[in-house]
Amino acid sequence: MLKLPEGMERVWLMKAKGMREVEIAEALGVSRQAVNKALKDARVKLFEAFFGLSEVFSWEIIRVNAEKGFMVARGKCGDRNTRVYAFYLPGKGVKAFFGEEFPEYILKHAVEVGIADEKSAEKLVKALES
C-alpha cells in the first residue's frame, strides 16, 4: 500500500488543511521551492496510488482530487454496480469504502482536511459528488 514519505506527507497534510506554501515553508524552516517540489511530488504519487487502485479492482474513475487526497469511482460489489469512495489517510495509506456509510475516523479526517464542513456521511457524499 502506498504511503507518502514522512516529510512529504507532513507538507501535503499542512496544505490540505488550508495552509499556504509560504506559511508551510516558515513553519518547517525550509524554502518555498522545497515546499512546492514536495507538493508536486505528493500529487503525482497520490494520483498514481488512486489510478493503481482503480486499475487493480477494475473501478471506473469518476473523480480524483490529489490536493485533498480522495477518489470517487464506480465499481462492482457482488453483482451490483456501486459507488466507491477512497481516501488517503496520513500514516495509513489509501482506504476505500463501498456505498455511503463511513466509519467515524473517515468523517473526522474529511473535516480535518476540509473535504466536508461537518462530521456527517450525507454531507461528505454531497461534497465528494459535487
Binding site: 500529487r43 480524483v64 482530487n65 490529489a66 470517487v72
Partner: peptide, 9 residues
C-alpha cells in the same frame, strides 16, 4: 501535468 490538483468526469 504536475500541477493538476483534480481530474474528474
Amino acid at each position: 501535468l504536475d500541477s493538476i490538483n483534480e481530474l474528474s468526469l
